[in-house]
Computed example of a mutant assay.
Amino acid sequence: MVFISETTYNCSYNFLKEKLPAHFHNVRLGIICGSGLGGLVDTIDQSSKVEFPYGDIPGFVTSTVSGHSGKLVFGYLGELKTPTVFMVGRIHLYEGYSPQECTFPVRIMKLLGVETLVVTNACGALNPEFKVGDLMVINDHLSLAAMASQNPLIGPNIESFGPRFPPVSDAYTYALRKLAFRAAFETGISKDDIREGVYTYSSGPMYESRSEARFLKEIGADVVGMSTVHEVLVARHADMKVLGLSLITNPVVTARGKDAKKEVLAEMGIETVVDDEIDTELVKANHAEVLEASANRANDLQRLMTRFADLWAKENN
């Protein structure tokens, strides 16, 4: 387990503050861009854009996943030109980093002044009513990784960030969820294309087995992904308000699959069996379809987030 000292956080913060223009010294809105969603930074006022590759910032580790370019970007978002900091590409446990390394940028955002954090992700649907391309506003989460001690808050507590035992029953701020729905409807997203539900965090990098998927569905999960929750835990520990948005990029296979014994009995003429289960060998999740679905929905998500920033700014300025 890697534990990061308060001195390291301050070193990273001071590095950024020295290089940032004064108008970005107190950035109140932060956005983490999930798989394939980094194009959001193309919507900001390009004349205001300042970016830092993760590898140039003390304390940051680098992102190694396709669709995650790995840079911290500052710029004005929306018509009201809200100063915003973006994580373009996140860090995952499955890349070999500790939970503390994965969430290091969130605490830097807190030091920079961020009060509201928006976390976005691509995920698979467990809920059969959800379809590929739907957006989901997260209203709660299940964290299997945190329950198995992969928790960024384990270790010495840094009191300057937050308390030893933070509650997370209110992890996803109700008022922000309402703003997200309003932004979606005002930008033309159909009420049938945006949902609300429970996000489950699995550490990855493998996609879930069929039995695991059925288990997650049974315990109340609507979608499952490999990120987000550890960032939310650190944000809430630091008293940041949080909005979570998921883009559904694939259905998760929950079927039991074809029965090999029945198939062989039928082939040998011993029994005549009709097996109507799907062939799970033909239905598999893959990262390419995640990126494709993200690209197809990118413009809608960008419009939603731009409008959300304006609505947020009106309520918080």
Score class of each variant (00 low, 15 high):
F24N: 09
Q302Y: 04
R297N: 09
L135Y: 00
V290P: 02
V168G: 08
L304I: 09
V137D: 06
G124N: 02
K217L: 15
G78K: 04
V119Q: 03
N157T: 02
T120D: 03
L265Y: 01
F60G: 03
K131R: 07
L153A: 04
E267A: 11
S149P: 13
V274F: 09
G162Y: 09
N250D: 06
N127Y: 05
D170G: 01
N139V: 01
L311Y: 06
V119T: 01
L40N: 12
V114F: 04
G75H: 02
P53V: 12
K131F: 01
Y207L: 03
P21M: 14
G96H: 14
E196V: 07
L112S: 04
A238Q: 04
F74K: 02
A238V: 10
T200K: 01
K191T: 14
Y97D: 07
D134Q: 11
L282V: 01
R297Q: 09
A171R: 07
D45A: 13
S169C: 13
D192Y: 14
V61R: 15
V65M: 12
A213G: 04
T306G: 07
L135N: 01
E212W: 08
T7E: 08
A146W: 01
E263T: 14
R256V: 12
P83D: 06
S98T: 06
M1I: 00
A266C: 10
K81H: 14
L29W: 09
N299E: 15
A235Y: 11
I158H: 07
D276A: 05
G70K: 02
T173Y: 08
N151H: 05
T120L: 05
S246Q: 00
L20T: 10
N121T: 05
I194L: 03
V290S: 15
H23C: 13
D193A: 12
M1S: 13
T173H: 12
K17Q: 11
S98P: 07
S98N: 12
T82K: 08
A125C: 03
A235M: 10
G204F: 12
E267D: 11
A221M: 14
H230A: 11
D42Y: 07
T254E: 10
C11M: 06
T249L: 01
A313W: 09
V274R: 15
Q100C: 03
G75E: 00
T280E: 07
V242W: 02
P83W: 02
A122S: 13
A288T: 12
G38Q: 03
S63T: 05
S190Q: 00
K71D: 00
L247Y: 00
Y199P: 06
Y13F: 08
V198T: 14
F104E: 04
V273T: 14
I158A: 05
G113N: 07
G89N: 13
A122F: 00
Y9T: 03
G220M: 09
T249N: 08
Q302H: 10
E129Y: 04
K217S: 13
K241R: 15
I138D: 02
K261A: 15
A175W: 12
N250I: 08
G162H: 05
S12F: 12
Y97K: 15
R177I: 03
A183S: 13
D239W: 10
H287D: 02
T64L: 02
T173L: 05
P205K: 08
F161G: 04
Y97T: 03
D42F: 08
G34L: 11
H68E: 08
G269K: 05
G36C: 15
F24A: 13
G124W: 07
C123F: 07
